[in-house]
């Protein structure tokens, strides 16, 4: 490593919170730059030496991470205002000071750590699984064509990271919207031949109070999704399925 890269510093500005009930405050840090550094490694530098830009020793910044390769969804945060994964965000491609904020669509636990359990509750609501358990063997399921598998694969990559909910203007305290992630998963489980046995139960959520009626087509979800999941396609298809289901189930009453 050359002397110049060692001397280079990365300026970070973190919006912190000491506890769930605490007040947010900004704190600045400068950490030594390394080539190919990502936001996680910059945060690790703070962990190694938790001294802020004023030279005061402070509590180290809390954040979540697991996989470091954009598949676990834990390190979502707002970096320079926009939500993304800290692991796949390279420091030298960002304007400095780099501002790090928690996704405050979710309840903030501490610093950059948020409680994403809302999305896991949403998966329970939409029955985000394929029912294979019974009191007797149900046999092997139907074959799935390669095209169908390819389409489903995109939705299967959802890592419940929360970027789509954070960027959606209609997911907030004033709106009951369950969010684009749940819509994508409804599409995913409904297109599975065995999963589709619970199709109507999922569509009940889609046409319910928290459902698709809350979508305003800002289409931010598909723009910010780190996995490139076609969430707006899922939403449009669920609009069609939901409209049909709502109309026919009413006409049959």
């Amino acid at each position: 490593m050359t002397a110049t890269t060692v001397d280079k510093l990365v300026q970070l500005k973190v919006r912190r919170k000491d506890s769930t009930t605490g007040e947010s405050y900004w704190e600045e840090f400068s950490v030594p730059f390394r080539t190919n550094m990502n936001v996680i490694s910059a945060l690790m530098e703070i962990q190694k030496n938790p001294v802020n830009a004023k030279g005061e020793k402070v509590r180290s910044v809390a954040w979540e991470y697991n996989c470091l390769e954009e598949v676990c969804g834990a390190c979502s945060m707002r970096i320079n205002g926009k939500v993304r994964q800290a692991c796949s965000t390279l420091v030298d491609r960002l304007e400095q000071p780099i501002t790090l904020e928690p996704m405050d669509t979710f309840p903030v636990e501490k610093d950059l750590v948020v409680d994403r359990s809302r999305m896991f509750n949403a998966l329970q609501k939409i029955k985000g699984w394929v029912p294979i358990d019974g009191t007797y063997g149900l046999g092997s399921g139907p074959l799935i064509s390669a095209d169908h598998q390819q389409e489903a694969y995109k939705y299967s990559t959802c890592m419940t990271c929360g970027c789509c909910l954070e960027a959606c203007p209609n997911v907030n305290s004033g709106s009951p919207f369950i969010g684009p992630q749940a819509m994508g998963q409804v599409k995913y489980f409904n297109m599975h031949p065995t999963g589709s046995l619970q199709k109507n139960e999922r569509l009940e959520v889609v046409i319910g109070e928290e459902g698709i009626a809350n979508c305003g087509s800002s289409q931010n979800c598909v723009q910010v999704c780190p996995k490139g999941i076609p969430l707006t396609t899922a939403i449009a298809e669920l609009n069609r399925d939901g409209n049909r289901y709502a109309l026919w189930s009413w006409l049959k009453k």
């Binding site: 369950i178 009940e204 319910g208 928290e210």
Partner: peptide, 21 residues
């Protein structure tokens, strides 16, 4: 103006459809 933070969802599926209609 609503704030950005959402409340937790309860695990009971909603049955009201008025918003959809």
């Amino acid at each position: 103006m609503p704030s950005n933070t959402v409340t937790q969802l309860n695990y009971t599926a909603s049955t009201r459809k008025s918003r959809f209609v």
